[in-house]
């Protein structure tokens, strides 16, 4: 179990319509570096990510965090340890500082300012959050998530609605976080992004893990299923 943060064993998740979004999945996400969950749209990557901070629960199978069953943990505590940045940049009402204090109402001005500085939004504290660009909103969302001092960050296609330069700036922040000791898991179907970010790669196809391991190992020994995804995927 050494070095594994999340482990999914025989996990099945059904949507509200009863359709299986993940079927008997086995996956391991390490506790270091950046793990990329790649795969075609609708393959179950986001569902897999949502299982990791219990926004979804498995219909069958088990999800473990540091070797302990997730269902035995306090979900509120877990979510403060495992932060999430969503696909759609979401600004809640109020200023940028108000948005950050949703994560920690007691955060003082200096802490808010330092966190904004860290994501490249120095001096933005008093700006109205609704007036930020998509890229700025997503960086604010990351600052908000980091204010809980998480051990790990989950990124659910955070750059899919951003222009390439805004997307690169979020990628750089994730890389910097990993370097500074906060590992993350990143969902994407963009092969260029996958190659730029991944230390560890999990390829998800049709609700199952097609292949997982170190990026170079997976690319070298790709199965036919993975080769077909890599040949047909998007690249930016």
């Amino acid at each position: 179990m050494d070095g594994v943060l999340f482990e999914l064993s025989e996990v099945t998740v059904r949507g509200p319509d009863g359709r299986e979004r993940i079927s008997g999945m086995d996956a391991r996400i390490p506790d270091h570096g950046i793990t990329v969950l790649a795969g075609p749209s609708g393959s179950g990557k986001s569902t897999m990510l949502r299982l990791c901070n219990r926004l979804e629960v498995p219909g069958a199978g088990r999800v473990s965090y540091r070797g302990a069953p997730m269902e035995d943990m306090d979900p509120l505590e877990l979510r403060r340890r495992v932060a999430m940045v969503f696909q759609r940049p979401t600004a809640l009402p109020g200023s940028v500082a108000d948005n950050l204090r949703i994560a920690d109402p007691g955060a003082g001005e200096a802490r808010v300012a330092a966190m904004l500085e860290r994501v490249g939004l120095g001096g933005f504290a008093d700006r109205r959050a609704a007036e930020l660009s998509g890229g700025e909103t997503q960086r604010m969302a990351l600052a908000r998530a980091l204010l809980t001092d998480p051990e790990y960050v989950l990124f659910d296609e955070p750059t899919s609605s951003l222009d390439p330069s805004a997307a690169r700036s979020i990628e750089r922040l994730a890389a910097q976080l990993a370097e500074d000791g906060t590992p993350s898991c990143w969902v994407t179907h963009d092969l260029g992004q996958m190659r730029r970010l991944a230390h560890h790669l999990v390829v998800v196809v049709g609700g199952r893990v097609a292949q997982q391991g170190h990026l170079d190992d997976v690319l070298r020994s790709r199965s036919a299923e993975v080769a077909s995804f890599l040949a047909g995927g998007d690249e930016e």
Partner: peptide, 13 residues
């Protein structure tokens, strides 16, 4: 839904 899930993911009840 997005606003609510943002708060939930930050550890809100």
């Amino acid at each position: 839904r997005d606003d609510i899930e943002v708060r939930i993911a930050l550890g809100w009840a």
